[in-house]
Nucleic acid binder design. Structure first.
Length: 412
RNA sequence: GGACAGGUGGGUGAGUUGGCUGAAACCACAUCCCUGCUAAGGAUGCGUACUGGUAACGGUACCGAGGGUUCGAAUCCCUCCCUGUCCGCCA
């Protein structure tokens, strides 16, 4: 959620920044309007309430002393009606304000490049060189007979579900453990969290109210399957005031993730790139505002080093405004090289949401005497399924076998 | 899922014939004083959000959530949520 005061005081600047994210500024205009209207209504209401409170106290005193209270009572009853009308207005405005505010995305940082979509993202750097093959490398689904069973995944569930077998199942497990250990060594504390969460939790991180269609909802309950560990892990501190010396809080968590992939019809229908259920090891950090850029770089480096340690060539991309997610102020994507597809594909995404989620989720810390919003950051380190198939494509041999990266051998 | 008991500030916990309680007391915490050494004592401060004011200092709202009764509710009524205990069920 954006800071309403910022919208009131620096309207032009907010609009300018949101334009970069392709947001219609009419919405901001009406947000500003409602907030101002609300403020003036409140200014009308509160003195009346003050009077009512004072007179009601008097009422009690007079009644005890046996004074005549009929006139006072009449006045209070009248005032009561005015208050009722006004509070109804205030309440309505509050609701409209929060409904609107909850649907407006975060402001992008100034360094975020202008751009419409993924084609305008900026490559920052490449790490490692893609391997060369003396045969034509296959795509992962062509070398996966004994590893991934797509048909039976569909039989059990529906399209975009798959089953891992034999070495693949084992490799998946090895990757999860390896990634968690890797992240833990860098100071991220491991947490294991629920995969099913409520509406407040999803609102805190920004998935709701706007993106309900992307989520699997539990029938008959106000509960949803998590689309990423970012949701439960960040919300661990929802409605809490953290003491300053606990920051930064650096966490890593393995979870399964569930996404409807609404709107991606026809994209990546083949293979395991885009599934409704996938495993991911996530990094989440809660920091003081002044530390969040530093921690952001740490997270990017952690994920990038993790890829390097697996011998996977990859590149860093700075996402442009148009490709930036709803809550992100800045995002760096890591794309791993997929020889079979002959291209880089996203395998990690690290975002700084600054105080956007913190304001929604009311995550604050005590800065001396004052409570201030924290910054929250999240990033994959890494998407396990995509890492698995990246390994398959990068480590394939002419005879169709697949080598296991050195660092994983002790995990198999 | 059924029965009963509860949900108050960072913690413990008063407050249940509605008004003087936004909330006692204790603990924790912060600053200061005394003392002087791995102690004790004393003073003051210490919820959150919005809002007025340069500030001092005020106002409003919040005692699980939402509604209701009333001039006035933490205190009464309704709905929901959660926790504990017992029972049932289950990896």
């Amino acid at each position: 959620m954006l800071d309403i005061k910022l919208i009131q005081n620096d309207f032009e600047n907010v609009c300018k920044k949101l334009r970069k994210k392709n947001v219609n500024e009419d919405i901001i205009e009406s947000l500003k309007e409602i907030s101002l209207k609300l403020k003036s209504k409140r200014a009308e209401l509160e003195p009346l309430q003050a009077e009512q409170n004072a007179s009601s106290k008097l009422f009690g005193v007079w009644a005890r002393e046996g004074k005549d209270i009929s006139e006072l009572k009449a006045r209070l009853s009248q005032n009561k009606e005015k208050i009722a009308t006004l509070s109804k207005d205030v309440k309505e405005l509050e609701e409209r304000l929060s409904n609107l505010a909850l649907t407006i995305p975060n402001l992008p940082d100034d360094i975020v490049p202008q751009g419409k979509d993924e084609n305008d993202n900026i490559e920052i750097k490449k790490v490692l060189t893609p391997p060369t093959f003396d045969f034509k490398p296959k795509e992962h689904w062509e070398i996966s007979e004994n590893w991934i069973d797509f048909q039976r995944g569909v039989k059990l569930s529906k399209s975009r579900f798959s089953v891992l077998k034999n070495e693949a199942a084992k490799l998946e497990r090895a990757l999860i453990n390896y990634m968690l250990d890797f992240n833990t060594k860098r100071g991220f504390k491991e947490v294991a969290v629920p995969y099913i969460v409520n509406r407040e939790t999803l609102t805190g991180t920004g998935q709701l109210p706007k993106f309900e269609d992307d989520l699997f909802k539990i029938e008959g309950e106000e509960l949803f399957l998590i689309p990423t560990a970012e949701v439960p892990v960040t919300n661990l501190f929802r409605d809490e005031i953290i003491s300053e010396d606990e920051l930064p809080i650096k966490m890593t968590s393995y979870t399964a993730c569930f996404r409807k992939e609404a709107g991606s019809a026809g994209r990546d229908t083949r293979g395991m790139i885009r599934q409704h259920q996938f495993d991911k090891v996530e990094l989440v950090c809660i920091t003081k505002p002044e530390d969040s850029d530093r921690i952001f770089n740490e997270m990017v480096k952690c994920a990038s080093d993790l890829l390097s340690s697996l011998g996977l060539a990859h590149r860093h991309l700075m996402l442009c405004g148009g490709d930036l997610g709803f809550g992100a102020a800045k995002t760096v994507d890591l794309e791993a090289w997929f020889p079979g597809q002959d291209r880089y594909r996203e395998i990690s995404s690290i975002s700084n949401t600054r105080d956007f989620q913190a304001r929604r989720a009311k995550i604050r810390y005590k800065d001396g005497k004052k409570n201030r919003l924290v910054h929250t950051l999240n990033g994959s380190s890494l998407a396990v399924g995509r890492t698995l198939i990246s390994i398959m494509e990068n480590y394939q041999k002419a005879d169709g076998s697949i080598e296991i990266p050195k660092v994983l051998k002790s995990y198999m």
